[in-house]
Amino acid sequence: MMNDMTKIKHHLTEPLLMGYAAGTLPEAFNLVVATHISMCDDCRAALAGYEAVGGEVMMDTAPVDVAEDALAATLALIESGKFADKPARVRTKNSVFPGPLQDYVDGDIDSLKWRKVGGGVSQLVLKTSKDASVRLLRIPAGTAVPDHGHRGTELTLVLQGAFTDSEDRFGAGDVEVANEDLHHTPVAEEGLDCICLAATDAPLRFNGLVPRIAQRFIGI
């Protein structure tokens, strides 16, 4: 748990929190939401509210009869031990990668197999369901990510360092939610390399010719 994360300024949006609570988001977005919430008590509390709404929606539905032997079958299932609690995977404290992300990456910043994507920027694509994609980005301090627009929604969560774009400054714990209207050129601040977790439900669209060609090969 990071205790110096009290200054988070950019939070998750209502549709994201509601979608996570309802279980309707792509896995890649769920990963960004769960990672941000691990760093942000405000959004954790807000999520609890959306989950409470979900509970009341469920309570409000017309009940559907269960099988006659459902209770007996459930007790048998419990006795079988098939649904016994599995021990959770051990997570490292004070990593740059909060718990949910540790389940997706094997190692720490310097031991990961980063792939260069040009301009000094490296990425590591994480394996998730195909309805959206998510990657770690490593942007060297002082470097700009090529100007790009978006077809769908792009979530960028800062894990270390900070970047600034036309919208604002985004530091550790901040999440930028960008849609089709935003063309931006994020620039990493001096100091630590900027490490971000970025998810999108459509391919990014780079404006310069070279990045766009590169895009076909590296699959940004």
């Binding site: 748990m1 990672t35 919430i37 718990g99 949910p100």
Partner: peptide, 10 residues
């Protein structure tokens, strides 16, 4: 139903 992994907050 969705057959996805399920990231959960710390």
């Amino acid at each position: 139903l969705r057959k996805q992994r399920r990231p959960e907050p710390e």
